[in-house]
Design a protein around this nucleic acid. Structure first.
Lengths: 290, 290
DNA sequence: CCAATATGTTAGCTGAACTTACAGATAAAT
DNA sequence: ATTTATCTGTAAGTTCAGCTAACATATTGG
């Protein structure tokens, strides 16, 4: 497109408005400038083209034949531009943020804090969907996912939110009187585990816990696991970040930290198109994680 | 059209070029600005809409889904604008100026000076058509007429070019030795007149000249009248403006001024559509008339 | 590993776009 | 016929949107 042959867009707009309203003064009102600005633009176009576009008719203006044809095509052009802008604005109307998160994260970390976000941003709706699966952000129309892993998912933006350190917790009275570091002094206390957490059983094995010689109870969700822990039915392996506040307020006892480099909670967003409120929510997540 | 809801046209243009070329740098070249200007415009649009429109992809850019749709409609709009400009330019290609003038004006005043116009504006072609009739400018496709009269022709623009004062002239030797003001001392010198000039005979009668008692010779055109005057065959009534230069250089003697209010030579142009070179020619005419 | 090419970003500059102020033309009201 | 209202015409002066300059960072090709 050879823009060097096209006059000022402001001038073309001034002429288009003039032609539609048959008046410099009315065009000035529509464009929020003075009639002098409009007149200068239109006369400038006439000078540039070497053609009359408008002429005086009584108190108002009329268009020459060339002016009429010119204005008609310009109006179509500016009309398309207006349509494009309108369509984009309509499309950008508020729809909720769709967030996918692991159930543990959603239940243990996010939901307890979400009240703070609602208070700070009442205008932003957030849908939180607990899922243990890696959702396809584009296909399933998620704006963000909180994932646990190494962070190397292709074609996605990833930012580490929380380190994935594990710890073993139990209700304090269950381990009362036992003085020992880590797992040496918890023989006989049942293990409470989530059935699908193969990684966690692997982790326990790697630090010497022989689950085949231990009393193990499994549940379908980590929520149930945590309910059983709170009920004093045993001890459980949990990610530190999720239970940090309960350790802090004394409802749970941290028996043992089990650091595991490389696996963390990540904020995952799609490349390209981003929800207009995504950055706001993301900033809030990192603020809460500090 | 609510322009307050439409962002900067410069920004929309920057985005359109970016989307078509997939590059800030290439868009900058097309628009003859720096890549920084383009980047600022596009990011400004994203901020205003609260939507991502482009994202980085390696060294270049890609469009989001919304960006693609937005760009498509904008391209149509700017395409129409380009078409409008191109059509107007094509239409305005040079054609000659068509000028109608009275034969006397054309022959005595305009043609002697036209060389100056040709020299100053070799690119402008001018067709000069001598006619004693009032041409219909629109119907007969004249861009301008030089008319003699009161100037009150309806639906036309009129500007007085030359005052219509008359004078009586003769070759200097024809009146040598006679010392008198105006017509008292020219008894016996023949009158040389153009056959169709009823107004002039009426003017002479109104100042006391009795043509029925005088020697009168008539010719078909004013050119022939002036040739006879230059040949020393008599005296003639002429419009002062047409013979002023010959009086000044001494080839003719001004015997008498006969002022006649209200009738003058006018530049007459149509309302509405004007030839692109008309103003240039008109300005030159008034320059010559000073 | 280095060079080339592209985008990101901010401080500072400037001329296109505009305003101001008045004049002139035309139509409506008195 | 005169006055008032409304519109365009125009030139001098003002201003900030649009831009450049300069440097940083990211990505790709050699």
């Amino acid at each position: 497109m050879d823009w060097s042959k096209i006059p000022s867009l402001h001038a073309l707009r001034a002429f288009e408005a003039t032609s539609r309203l048959r008046s410099f003064s009315k065009a000035a009102v529509e464009l929020n400038v003075t009639h002098a600005a409009i007149a200068q633009h239109v006369r400038g176009l006439e000078a540039e083209f070497g053609e009359s576009l408008v002429f005086r008719q009584g108190r108002g203006l009329a268009l020459t034949e060339q002016g009429k044809q010119f204005a008609q095509t310009l109006r179509t052009g500016f009309g398309e531009i207006e349509t494009a802008v309108h369509d984009l604005r309509t499309q950008g109307e508020t729809r909720p943020l769709n967030i996918s998160a692991t159930p543990a994260f959603a239940g243990q970390w996010l939901m307890p804090r979400i009240g703070d976000f609602w208070e700070k941003h009442p205008e932003i709706l957030v849908n939180i969907n607990p899922s243990i699966q890696l959702v396809d952000l584009a296909r399933d129309r998620y704006d963000m996912a909180i994932r646990y892993g190494a962070g190397d998912w292709p074609n996605l933006n990833t930012k580490r939110l929380l380190h994935g350190d594990f710890c073993v917790v139990a209700r304090p009275d269950i381990v009362a009187g036992r003085i020992t570091d880590c797992l040496d002094d918890v023989q006989g206390i049942p293990w409470l585990l989530e059935g699908s957490m193969m990684e966690r059983t692997a982790l326990l094995k790697s630090v010497g816990v022989d689950l085949s010689n231990a009393q193990v109870k499994t549940f379908t969700t980590n929520e149930l696991v945590l309910s059983a822990v709170h009920a004093g039915l045993g001890m459980s392996l949990q990610t530190g970040a999720l239970v940090r506040s309960q350790i802090a307020n004394g409802t749970l006892q941290n028996i043992c930290d089990l650091a595991q480099d490389g696996l963390s909670y990540f904020v995952v967003t799609p490349k390209g198109n981003l929800h207009k409120d995504l950055k706001t929510f993301e900033n809030w997540l990192f603020e809460m994680a500090r």
